[in-house]
Design a protein around this nucleic acid. Structure first.
Lengths: 134, 134
DNA sequence: ATTTGTGCAAATCGTTTGCATCTGA
DNA sequence: TCAGATGCAAACGATTTGCACAAAT
């Protein structure tokens, strides 16, 4: 993803490269893997001098998600996190400060799952390892 | 848990067996494993002719959770689910209708987890298998 | 020109809280 | 009696939405 401009990335995803989408894409995709909430990303954009409304950040995150550029992560709780790493991987979550990290390993496996109930198939498995201070 | 009255159960947990706590405990614990949201439980109580406010249902669910009678389940999204099965086990979640089910197997294992980062230890691992209609 | 996106403020949803009243030990 | 519980309504935080305006093709 670092090999195309944000504009190209958006165009390929079928999204018009508007000013705000381009600047959000830059923040999201030009600095490696990231985990953000709408609030965090909005604050970051504003600090970087970009004019974007919070509503647009919400809209944009969902559009990026639908376009497959982001993945939403299911940690229970109130706020929604989005991950720029859309490949299959898992997470550490530190409840105390709401910090979310990728688990640095491709080796994590879930074993022993039975067949899903009739007429259902597995869409995706979320593994969240909750951490607390030692 | 089916071997003590709701009143006893509450007393043992250090909670006064008030009318509303007893009726909620009955709904929760006298019919096998259950997964409920506050809204669901409140509606159920009202339908059963119990007078309980939604606020009290919220309070009660959290008190039961603190007392170890319930476990809160982290499926991302907005509403909080509580599970009457407090032992270690995992879940299926059907996004389409918000249905949550226990995975009928003790055999599910997560392998290959690296050591957690410095100064952290694992508090608990959530595995949520998301299902979609076939 | 036409379609699509944006911003704001108001609306919504789930949840929590303040406080006066009630209830169980 | 009286600490603790309940109910209501207001407060809240995260998110969504309606709609007039602006920008992209």
């Amino acid at each position: 993803m670092a090999d195309v401009t944000p504009g190209e990335l958006l165009r390929q995803a079928g999204l018009r490269p508007t000013r705000q989408r381009v600047s959000l894409a830059r923040l999201l995709f030009e600095h490696g893997d990231r985990h953000v909430t709408a609030e965090m990303l909005h604050e970051e954009a504003v600090k970087a001098g970009q004019r974007v409304s919070l509503a647009t950040v919400y809209n944009t995150l969902h559009q990026f998600k639908s376009a497959g550029l982001l993945r939403e992560i299911a940690i229970g709780g109130q706020r929604a996190y989005f991950d720029t790493n859309t490949s299959n991987h898992n997470h550490y979550f530190v409840e105390a400060d709401g910090r979310l990290m990728d688990i640095p390993s491709e080796a994590v496996r879930v074993d022993g799952l039975p067949e899903p109930p009739d007429n259902f198939k597995i869409s995706h498995i979320d593994v969240v390892v909750r951490l607390v201070a030692k």
